[in-house]
């Protein structure tokens, strides 16, 4: 070893390339570890969860104190909450981004708004849960309900959607705006007729990633919307719902018989992962397709 080191130092080019090889090895290994982590987790969930999946599992409610039966109410609840989050986050996010990219001039107000958006993006999900509890559930008296949960999730994904929409709006060439304005078309009509339609695909794909997050979050809905178990399906937006992420948590930590319900737990995890990752995957595929077929 001592000799080897000496020979490397004597031959400096070789030593330099040896360091490079070593470094590249470490870098490749890191990438590999990350890929394996994802692969391993997915593989494990699929192998263990696939046995539990059946038509009944997806379409029937749980029975026998949630030790048997399906997870239909939780799937439905997650769908409701996600749609609610989109209904709140998407319009607000797009409107914010329109102001920031189309109207705002550089200055303190804009800087403040942008810092605010970054800070909101960094608020921990459990704090969002507390906010939802303190504000929507208690202060506005919405109770633990689809409405409270959707509002909480909607504001949680707001920064993601603003970011996606800003990026998509900025990607619309400035020349389109100039062309429209030079024809004597007003600013708002230019935004509405030219900028928005061209940015919309980008806004939507970017937002999908936020939507996937809304579907998978647990802490924000724990105190605002999610029920341990509901006998009936929700009838209005003021009802509590079951939700997939919370159902997993409940079964895995507080169920009546944690070991015996493992297959159901794995099955529920698989369903949640399938839902969230297919949402993400669709976004990723559409985006790469759009990049390849860019029209301008």
């Amino acid at each position: 070893m001592e000799d080897m080191m000496k020979s490397f130092k004597n031959n400096s080019m070789k030593w330099r390339y040896f360091k490079q090889t070593l470094f590249f090895g470490a870098v490749r290994l890191s990438a590999l570890i990350i890929a394996l982590a994802l692969g391993g987790i997915l593989f494990y969930i699929i192998v263990n969860g696939i046995g539990a999946i059946s038509w009944d599992f997806i379409t029937k409610p749980p029975t026998d104190s949630m030790t048997k039966g399906g997870i239909m109410p939780a799937i439905l609840g997650t769908i409701y909450l996600t749609i609610g989050a989109i209904a709140i986050g998407l319009p607000l996010g797009i409107a914010s981004a329109i102001y920031l990219t189309e109207y705002a001039k550089q200055g303190r107000v804009i800087r403040l708004i942008k810092v605010g958006i970054n800070c909101l993006a960094g608020v921990p999900s459990v704090v969002f849960g507390l906010f939802g509890l303190g504000f929507f559930v208690i202060f506005l008296k919405f109770g633990s309900s689809i409405l409270s949960g959707s509002l909480t999730l909607g504001f949680l994904i707001l920064p993601t959607i603003i970011g996606a929409a800003e990026e998509a709006l900025k990607a619309v060439p400035q020349t389109f705006r100039e062309a429209s304005l030079s024809l004597g078309v007003s600013k708002w009509q230019t935004i509405y007729r030219i900028v928005l339609p061209n940015a919309l695909p980008g806004i939507l794909t970017g937002s999908i990633l936020g939507i996937g997050r809304a579907a998978g979050e647990t802490a924000p809905i724990m105190f605002t919307a999610a029920a341990y178990f509901t006998a009936k399906l929700p009838g209005s937006i003021f009802d509590e719902v079951m939700a997939l992420p919370y159902h997993i948590y409940v079964l895995a930590t507080a169920g009546t018989n944690i070991e015996a319900t493992r297959p159901i737990q794995y099955g529920t995890v698989l369903v949640l992962v399938a839902v969230v990752l297919s949402i993400d995957l669709i976004a990723i595929i559409i985006r790469s397709y759009m990049r390849k077929n860019k029209r301008w």
Binding site: I41, L209, G212, G216, Y246, I248, V269, L272, L277
Partner: peptide, 8 residues
Amino acid sequence: LAGLPSVV
């Protein structure tokens, strides 16, 4: 990986 729900 970023998309994996934390509960999972």
